[in-house]
Amino acid sequence: MTPKLLERSRLDDLVSILSNDYQVFGPVARKADVSFQEVSSAEMLDLNYTTTTLPPKKFFHLRETLLEYREGEFNAPELDLERSILLFGVHPCDLNAILRMDRLLSKEFVDLYYLRRRENSAIVALNCTEVGENCFCASLGTGPAIDKGFDLLLTDLGDSYLVEVGTLRGQRMIEDLNLEDASQADLRKKEELLEAARAKFKKSIRMEGLAEVAAESPDHEVWTLIGESGGLAGCFPCLSCGNCSLVCPTCYCYEVADIPDITLRAGVRRRELDSCQLLEYAKVAMGHNFRPDRKSRVRHWMTCKFGGAGGGLESSCVGCGRCIHSCPAHIDLTEVAKALWGE
């Protein structure tokens, strides 16, 4: 379908049409950060945002009740999927992360809870014409533009948004708006803006082959510097706080626990996002811990991002920069990569 043009002033028309069929969530500015929140009008949106605290995984994989039990009987609970959700203004890095999560959680064994939530969602993506100080998606090919995974894709051209359609569902979303076709000049402008954006990145990472380099360097000094003492490129040693895992759009590891109610005869089995940076993560019965030191835990996280995720050799990092921003100690994945490459 030919790309369309949506005048900036009509953004609210789009949001209100979407609100008829979906519960719409988009980037909303808060005191000092941006967060995906439910929106009812375009003016609530902050589409100039660079990043949000939690990635969109918060809608699919934060915590979940796996089973409910009562008097010895147990069953899977119904998911609360009354209305479909629509994520508005998802950046390419985050959309790429969602697509990777889709793959990681539907390998040999499928995570039904995740997939059901995903199937219940629609996505209006937003290409990045501005770049955050911690972004490095361009070097990974996961931004600042995207060409798949969305129902609609917006690019801010200034006075208007270029609207590209990715699915039939997306086509229906804009049907009633009677948008005019975009011109060749509009399409050229999109490419110019994205090209300009690519030139703005301050950080980059050389990812190809990094997984092997990291796997072959378990005793590299960089692990000691970020894990124990010294620091690297101005960072302090890791705090094991786990922020990096929670904010990473592709960290999917979770913890499971049974929570009985006060009668003890009923309760739930619940999962919740976990972090491999926490001391207890690799502890087994009898108290033995396979990653007792901070150095081995940071190394594990980094090598997972570099390519160990899901047992594959595909990087799960999309260059969103959240781990850098959210790290109180300023540990910077791109600096770790440089050190491993000997740069």
């Binding site: 040999e108 064994f109 995570d111 796997a215 979770y254 499971v256 976990d274 090598t303 390519g307 047992g311």
Partner: peptide, 12 residues
């Protein structure tokens, strides 16, 4: 089943 991550040995 290879989802929760706790048993990882490197990438395995």
């Amino acid at each position: 089943v290879g989802l929760c991550g706790h048993c990882q040995l490197g990438s395995k």
